[in-house]
Design a protein around this nucleic acid. Structure first.
Lengths: 145, 145
DNA sequence: CCAATTTCCTTGGTCGAACCAACCTTGGTG
DNA sequence: CACCAAGGTTGGTTCGACCAAGGAAATTGG
């Protein structure tokens, strides 16, 4: 991982910087999540349920940017862990209504703490102000309102 | 890719924003590179050769953050394309001295143009100033000098 | 009220990037 | 000379991101 001086042309491409930063984040998250016995996707799903309430699999997936088939696998894990309940919606029997369990709510806080630590680690070279600016710029790039 | 309103907890995690931005960049680069019949790795390797001159496979890999075994495959592609020459270094016969060919130099410019366009596409929501600030912040995060 | 279409979930894949381990040849060192 | 380190090659694994087909249930339109 030692990065000898990298080519100027490369360092000048934001896409390369983003990709490298993402790789670093991915590795840190991987370590934190295996330590916690979870996944980043779990956090995303639990967060969506907490904020928006019970919902169908597709809508949760749209909110978090997770594919339907991946949602399926993630919800299998979360239900066997008891963090989420999957019941077919009586008002539309195509849907599975996913609800957050009390254990899931606690799990969310647990994963949130772990991931917040990862942010500190990832961005330890930046001041609080710079972190805010980076967050704002990336939010703008992704056009999230 | 339609992103319905995403959970606040998620949007607040820079690692998530970086990962999503990286996914977008990755897709755009994929399109641009298949159109050009190349890869992002090719660009990185050619850029390293142009800036630092002929070198061994490992050192190029260290500069670009590419694994040895991946370097092997990439150099196979680049040599059959005639963009790079691989010759065993007479002064150390363990090494392969990789050199940039004239065609490789032209190829570098070609890929640079394609990737510069990708940056424009990826960051079209940002002003030139904001792009510079984002680049500076990410460079700082990655501790590149 | 029936037919066609759409939605949601499930299943079973593919693909590429990142990474790892073992091995061989060659170079350097005690 | 014996031993270890470095460069390269080969052959893998893993994981996230994605795609396609199909079944069940709802909706729409004639």
């Amino acid at each position: 991982m030692e990065m000898e001086e990298s080519p100027t042309r490369l360092r000048g491409k934001p896409s390369w910087l983003i990709s490298k930063a993402s790789a670093r984040a991915h590795r840190l998250i991987g370590e934190a999540m295996t330590a916690a016995g979870g996944r980043a996707y779990h956090f995303a799903i639990l967060a969506a349920l907490e904020e928006f309430g019970p919902d169908s699999q597709v809508r949760i997936g749209q909110r978090c940017g997770i594919d339907q088939s991946d949602m399926h696998a993630m919800l299998n894990e979360l239900t066997t862990q008891g963090h989420v309940a999957r019941a077919s919606d009586p008002s539309d029997r195509r849907r599975n209504l996913i609800t957050l369990t009390p254990a899931g709510r606690r799990r969310l806080e647990e994963l949130d703490r772990a991931l917040s630590k990862v942010q500190d680690d990832l961005l330890n070279a930046l001041s609080a102000d710079e972190r805010d600016r980076l967050t704002a710029l990336l939010t703008h790039v992704l056009a999230l309102t």
